[in-house]
Structures are given as structure tokens and as C-alpha cells.
Write a protein that binds this DNA or RNA. Sequence first.
RNA 1: GGGUGAAUAGCGAAGUGGCCAAACGCGGCUGACUGUAAAUCAGCUCUUAAUUGUUCGGUGGUUCGAAUCCAUCUUCACCCA
Length: 373
Amino acid sequence: MDKFYLEILHKDENSNARVGILHTPHGDVETPMFMPVGTNATVKTLTPEQVKACNSGVVLANTYHLHLRPGEEIVKEAGGLHKFMNYDGPILTDSGGFQVFSLASRRKITEDGVEFRNELDGGKEFFSPEIAIKIQEDLGADIIMSFDECIPYPAKKEYVLKSTERTLRWAKRGLEAHKTDQALFGIVQGGEFTDLREYAAKELAKMDFPGYSIGGTSIGEPKEVCYKMIQDAVRYLPFDKPRYLMGVGSIDYILEGIENGIDMFDCVLPTRLARHGTLMTSKGRINIQRAEFKKDFHPLDDECDCYTCKHYSRAYLHHLYKVHEDLGKTLNSIHNIRFLISLVEKAREAIKENKFKEFKEEVYKKYNDPRGF
RNA sequence: GGGUGAAUAGCGAAGUGGCCAAACGCGGCUGACUGUAAAUCAGCUCUUAAUUGUUCGGUGGUUCGAAUCCAUCUUCACCCA
């Protein structure tokens, strides 16, 4: 197996944006990149071939949900996640730290870990930093995450400090328990507080992870707060290691992240929006359910090179939505994923020419949606 | 020709004397969605600016009050000849 590392090819002269190649056991992928999310070992409504056709690199899966069903022992017996879900590119598993946030009403946090009450039969599921690592080792992704708490926003500084310190202790415990050569990332928490983000980033850097994530963003905080959290965290992370901004998938957040030196993004936004009939375009979002698209025979986005835009009209996608045909969700997901991947591809080209800021301004200028990004 | 049953908002369907402008579902129109408990969720959907006006097949009654009771007509469904 090849060694995991980020090869930085070029840094933009006018910002912190950089382009690179992430070397992984399942292939080299270019950064910055957008990673589609396949929580249950599938990017919903898409085959791996369809995901790859969007020029995907890394794809995500989720430790908590796969632990519940089918269970990591089955995935292991199947030959690991890649074989199980038939995706031969790099895979990243999230640790279950996000579920500490999203399933807050059904879990209890202690120093040792988190006890979840699962939604299937009410059974207890205990996740410790060590258990989360062990499960991820069984799942066999290329990149795995430390077990953390995704801290809600807003939260009192007193709590954010307590939680951030605990997440740091958990990162260290996970690191010590980690046995395989999968790349384990530490996760920077610290909420909206500059000093806590700095503290968390510095402490994690000392532990020398092969990569670093920034967590606890895009969970309802104002845009400016999110941008500040990114900057506060990135500043103290080692330059030559990959930086992963977790859960970010809107155009503006991705571009701001890239400008600040982020290499990896993941988000359920494109796939969820797609299933719900909202399409991302260079000019703004489209709600394909709207009556105005009934007779609109244009593609979703003139500038998009995705399979959906090449072959289907808005009218057809509107029709599929109205009659609840699964194909609509598939075609919409292909478009939204390709749209974001294409966005970061263009960003990479701009960085190589030291024109990232101009590129960003151009994207913003073209975008005209009163509802925002 | 005889009998029985039914007609409620765009559709289906509750309601069988006042709490009914009328449940609920579908359809229609809009929104939301950011490390996925999400093919989900929320709002509006007779008419008004309105506590406004007009409704429950038609007409005429009974009653303080009718979608609900009575009479009659129309249409539909099923059954008998």
C-alpha cells in the first residue's frame, strides 16, 4: 500500500489557496476537492459508476450508521468498505462525532465516551474514542476520523472549553489505540472562540496527525462566524498536511474555505437538495418542482457538463419530480454533485494561475439568487 | 316498468339539527435543507383587505337554527322484471 500524504503542487500568490495531490492507497486525487457523502455505504440514489462519472475522488461513509447496520463485522467479512460498496476510489469514514450533535436528544456524553440510544430498537450503543477507531479499522476506509463532539451553536464558552478539551483527550486516546496504516485525522473544535480554536489546532498539531479536520461549522451559525472559525483554526495547522473542512457544501463556504487553505470538503447538501428537488446552478438555486419549469426545455445550467445537463431538460426533470420517479432523484443528484466537483476543478485551475480571488469574484458576480447560496 | 342506495370544495372521502367554511387523504402552489434518523419536513389551497360574502345536486318546506329533517324534481349506481 502506498503511503498517505498530501503533495502540494502550488500555492496561490494572492491567498492561502493551494492545489495538491492527495496520495491514498486507493489512488491519487487532486485537491481542493469536494467529497460526496454516502452515509450508509452508498451515495443515495447513485451507483458508484455514476458517482465516478462526476469525477469524484474521495467518498464518505459513516461509522455510527454502518455500526448499526449492517455492523462492521459484516463489512469486514465482505472484504472491507471498498469491496462491499464497490467503490475503488478513496473512502473516508466519519467517526460518529457528528451524531453526537445530530442525535443529541438520544445520547449521553461522559469522559469515557458517548452512549447513544439507537432509533431502531432503542438499544444502547456505546462509542468511545477507542471503539470508534476499532470500528473504522474494521470498515477499512483510507481516511478515518478521531471521535469528537460536534459542538452545537450557540454554546456557552464554558461548555465549549470543556468539550474542546475533552475532544483533544479523545483525539489522543484514538491516536494511541490506532493500529492500522489508515490515515487518522484529528478534528479541531473550539466553537466560535478564537482562542479555543487556536488552542485546539495547536494541541492537535503537536500530536502529528497525517491530516486535520475542522469541525463544528455550518451548523446554523452566521456566515461571518463560520468564516472566522475557519481562519482561526487553519492558521495553526501544519502547512504540509491536508486540511478538511467538515460538512461544508454551499458555493460560498467552499470558496471561502479554499481561499483560506482548505483542501477537502464534504457535504450532504448537494445530494439532499437534489432528492428534494433543488438544483444548484451557477446563477442560483432552482426548485424544479415549480410550475414555471413545466415547459422549460433548457438544461438546468447552460455551463454544466454533467450527464443530466447534457441529456435532459428542466421540463423533464420537473415531470419526474411531479410523478415521484426515482430517476429524477438520480439525475438531480448527478447534477448537484458534478456541479460542486466542477466548481472546485475550476478553482484549482485558477489557483495554478494565481487568480483564485478573481475566480471567486467572478463566481459571486454571476450568482444571482436573492435567497443566497 | 318496479325497488334500493347515493349525490359534500379540483378529485376521493368524513360529517346525519347548533361547537361547520365543513375532518382526513390525493392533487395544486410555495418554502426549508450544510461531517444524512431526511425519496424528508413546513406553510397555503371556496371567496374577501376583513371577525367579508356565498356553499354541501335543484326547488320548496319544517325549525330560533339545516350539509344534516320533510316533500318534490334531476342525475348516477346496483338489484328485480
